[in-house]
Nucleic acid binder design. Structure first.
Lengths: 172, 172
DNA sequence: GAGATTACCTTGGTCGACCAAGGAATGGTT
DNA sequence: AACCATTCCTTGGTCGACCAAGGTAATCTC
């Protein structure tokens, strides 16, 4: 019983010696968040499809719809995405006619972004889709549970921001 | 005062007539989930980087580490991803030496996937990274809060699965 | 057994998201 | 005025994730 050569012949030959049954140990919250987020995104994708938007673009459009023309850098700060992501997304949104980009006369480095009139037709649809999705996702949860869910998520978000130095100041 | 030409000159000219102040109406949970998930993923990415893995690959590797050689289709069901996603991910994982693929002798359509010995060195590192990330994300949350968070997320997940017909049976 | 159906995987395409690097204009220092 | 640092955006690359379509092999049906 000293040598670990015969490991009781595991049916599936776990390759890496023995080790723990990882499935359980893998952070349950991390897994849950990943799965829920992916599900949420793909459902949003299907719903948004009819509107001609890809998932992720809604956030940008929403910001433009109620902020009017903004500098691209403001947009970046608002949605907290990588600048290059925004650049490319805007190029596509411009090509599909949802957005207009023009150089800022006051700062020749900057670019002003604005939702086109055509895109305004989507506002209602997108709003509806999001409301429906939210309700679908939260079906059966009491108001208290909903607020607690967002509270917990906010705390997790705050945690993930600290120390990594990847987030803007939580205050403003 | 009939023509709507002078719209009282809004400072930021919100383009789409008036409408509501969307920021508030956009589903709070949906937003929260998106942001948290992105944050979680990018932090994981940074941590996993040292191990030579890209975010998302960990799930696949974990499954392989404790299941041994599996058919690709099983892997697909386990991680609930699109087949093509798995195919491409495995091609990269094979090229980077973390995984081995071989035709299944019992079914010539199928492919058997297995973690390489080299990859076993990563098991500990990945486990540590995930444990640390989980703790970092949940810092300050009581045990009760943690379990409730996963409970709430599970319910949301279940909700998102139903009706859309995009999920496997929740039972098995 | 022949034919249709299903299961398994691949390829090609598009997008979002990131990093790394770089070009241009602005702003502050000396 | 000259220089350096910062800000703003772009390009090029890689990956994960999806959809649509296809090609081969098993399986079911008649």
């Amino acid at each position: 019983m000293s040598a670990s050569q015969e490991v009781a012949a595991p049916q599936a030959d776990p390759v890496c010696t023995d080790k723990l049954p990882s499935a359980a140990r893998g952070g349950p919250v991390g897994h849950a968040i990943s799965r829920v987020a992916r599900l949420h995104r793909t459902t949003a994708a299907k719903l948004l499809r009819g509107a001609g938007l890809y998932p992720g673009q809604e956030f940008v459009m929403m910001h433009l719809w109620d902020r009017g023309p903004v500098r691209q850098s403001d947009l970046i700060k608002a949605v907290e995405l990588d600048p290059s992501t925004i650049t490319k997304m805007l190029q596509r949104l411009e090509q599909s006619g949802h957005v207009t980009r023009s150089p800022d006369p006051k700062d020749r480095r900057a670019v002003l972004v604005e939702a086109t009139e055509k895109s305004c037709g989507l506002l209602d649809e997108v709003t509806l889709v999001w409301a429906g999705l939210e309700e679908h996702a939260l079906a059966g949860l009491s108001q208290a549970e909903r607020t607690q869910l967002v509270a917990l998520l906010s705390r997790v978000e705050a945690n993930l921001c600290t120390e990594t130095g990847g987030c803007p100041a939580p205050g403003s």
